[in-house]
Simulated assay, not measured.
Amino acid sequence: MLLNTLILIATVAGMEVAAALIHRYVMHGFGWRWHRSHHEPHQKRFELNDLYAVVFAAIAIVLIALGTGGAWPLQWIGAGMTAYGLLYFVVHDGLVHKRWPFRYIPRRGYLKRLYLAHRLHHAVKTKERGLSFGFLYAPPTDKLREELRRRQSPSTSADAATDRHDVGPVDARGR
């Protein structure tokens, strides 16, 4: 049981690395067609970007099915992917984007750093020049602010950028 738990925890950690890489190189690359909806204002309950969650859920389901059919440790890897998906739903969709009725805005600590880092990610409305691609890990926000200032061009101002979920303007300091 200990080994299975370690596999699950390692998978959750590995998923953050994989998700950050996929976010940067797929979603902000050749997969921008789906992901663009996440960076544009809309009033719909679902967005084309949600198809990524469907793809990852399908992979987790297949792994769990194969694992319970005898291909150990695939069920624990699938369970780790599912746990990561739940954390993503709570933190990214709930806390950051307010896609469910929980309206908490963190004022300090890790959750504030995560919240501000993702707000700074959304200050860039195009697939290029993005920053902070992780979902559960965020670099220090002062480093992200500095990087955003460095990447800005006169035509792309973070001071004018607003979050699509009506939580106020975002400036280069993430406020």
Rank of each mutant, 00 (worst) to 15 (best):
residue 3 L to E: 08
residue 3 L to G: 06
residue 4 N to R: 12
residue 5 T to E: 09
residue 6 L to S: 12
residue 6 L to E: 07
residue 12 V to P: 02
residue 12 V to F: 03
residue 13 A to I: 12
residue 13 A to R: 02
residue 13 A to T: 07
residue 18 A to D: 04
residue 19 A to F: 09
residue 21 L to G: 10
residue 23 H to S: 03
residue 23 H to R: 07
residue 25 Y to W: 15
residue 26 V to Q: 06
residue 27 M to F: 14
residue 27 M to A: 10
residue 30 F to P: 07
residue 32 W to H: 08
residue 34 W to N: 05
residue 36 R to W: 06
residue 37 S to D: 10
residue 37 S to N: 09
residue 38 H to C: 06
residue 38 H to R: 13
residue 39 H to Y: 08
residue 39 H to V: 06
residue 41 P to F: 13
residue 41 P to D: 10
residue 45 R to Q: 10
residue 45 R to W: 15
residue 47 E to V: 14
residue 50 D to F: 07
residue 50 D to H: 15
residue 54 V to E: 05
residue 55 V to M: 10
residue 58 A to M: 11
residue 58 A to I: 12
residue 59 I to A: 14
residue 59 I to M: 11
residue 60 A to H: 03
residue 60 A to C: 08
residue 62 V to E: 10
residue 63 L to Y: 07
residue 65 A to P: 00
residue 68 T to K: 15
residue 72 W to I: 03
residue 74 L to M: 10
residue 75 Q to A: 10
residue 76 W to D: 00
residue 78 G to Y: 00
residue 79 A to H: 01
residue 79 A to E: 02
residue 81 M to S: 01
residue 84 Y to W: 15
residue 84 Y to A: 06
residue 84 Y to M: 06
residue 90 V to N: 02
residue 94 G to Q: 07
residue 95 L to N: 01
residue 96 V to Q: 01
residue 98 K to E: 09
residue 100 W to A: 05
residue 100 W to P: 02
residue 104 Y to T: 06
residue 106 P to I: 03
residue 106 P to V: 04
residue 109 G to N: 05
residue 109 G to Y: 02
residue 109 G to S: 09
residue 110 Y to M: 05
residue 110 Y to I: 08
residue 110 Y to C: 04
residue 111 L to G: 01
residue 111 L to C: 06
residue 112 K to I: 00
residue 116 L to C: 02
residue 117 A to H: 01
residue 118 H to D: 01
residue 119 R to F: 07
residue 122 H to Q: 07
residue 123 A to W: 01
residue 128 E to G: 09
residue 128 E to K: 14
residue 129 R to A: 13
residue 129 R to M: 11
residue 135 F to L: 04
residue 135 F to H: 03
residue 137 Y to S: 01
residue 137 Y to L: 07
residue 139 P to Q: 06
residue 141 T to D: 00
residue 143 K to Q: 13
residue 145 R to A: 14
residue 146 E to D: 13
residue 146 E to M: 09
residue 149 R to E: 12
residue 149 R to Q: 11
residue 150 R to A: 13
residue 152 Q to E: 15
residue 153 S to W: 06
residue 154 P to A: 13
residue 155 S to G: 08
residue 156 T to F: 08
residue 157 S to K: 12
residue 157 S to M: 06
residue 158 A to R: 01
residue 158 A to M: 05
residue 158 A to K: 02
residue 159 D to N: 14
residue 160 A to R: 12
residue 160 A to F: 11
residue 163 D to V: 13
residue 165 H to T: 08
residue 167 V to C: 06
residue 169 P to R: 13
residue 169 P to W: 14
residue 170 V to T: 12
residue 170 V to C: 04
residue 171 D to M: 07
residue 171 D to N: 15
residue 171 D to Y: 15
residue 171 D to P: 10
